[in-house]
Simulated assay, not measured.
Amino acid sequence: MVTRITLVEGDITQQQVDVVVNAANSSLLGGGGVDGAIHRKGGPEILEDCRRLRASHWGGGLATGRAVATTAGRLPARWVVHTVGPVFLEETYEEGAELLASCYRESLRAAAELGARTVAFPAVSAGVYGWPPADAARIALTTVSEVLDGGDAGAGAELAEVRFVLFGAETYRVFESVREELLGRDED
């Protein structure tokens, strides 16, 4: 199966997909940005599922780079996959970059375990966590492409579309520019 990677400027809470990925904080109990928007629009069902997770396996919270699924509540998606991105710090760039890539790999793995065919991602860590947008785009697009090309057995096998839902024209422009750069590099 060929999986399409698409970019759209818009609101991730409006996406009619199987899985919406939430750029969550480690508490899983909501926050600002994408996390807050998903919890507000999805309603109390998402928070209830997150509390159940905290009361069981994820009592200490979700570690950076990991992903876990819950209901999507009132969102037009079927599930939410929560992932915790790293905060950008120059002095720990290599470790942070690997954790950011792990967010995408682990989210795709969780989506595959659910049987999802369509997944919508935000630009994880590119907002209040301070990751430079072009670098965040490069890590996101490269990692997702590697998973879909078989670099992570089974994680992308059944996906028909991975959609990056980018908030604002500038973030969309950065992702589009990085995608064009990466595609040009693949053709060389």
Rank of each mutant, 00 (worst) to 15 (best):
A37R: 07
A123N: 08
G151R: 06
V165S: 10
A153W: 11
L62M: 11
E95G: 08
G36H: 02
G42S: 04
T171E: 07
E146C: 03
G115H: 03
L47I: 03
T6D: 11
A77M: 07
V87S: 10
P122G: 09
A123H: 05
G130T: 10
I139M: 11
Q16R: 12
A155R: 12
T71K: 01
P132A: 03
T71V: 12
V178P: 10
E170K: 15
V17F: 07
S145W: 11
T6M: 05
P132K: 09
T118I: 06
E98T: 12
A69T: 02
A136D: 07
T171K: 08
L89N: 09
R4F: 13
P122F: 00
S125M: 04
L62D: 14
Y93R: 15
H39E: 02
F88A: 12
V81L: 06
P86F: 07
A77C: 12
E187I: 09
A67R: 14
A67F: 11
L100I: 05
D18G: 09
G127L: 10
R185N: 00
V178A: 05
D186P: 01
M1G: 09
G85T: 10
E181Y: 04
V17E: 12
G73R: 04
G10A: 03
V178S: 09
G85C: 11
G151C: 06
H39L: 03
L99R: 15
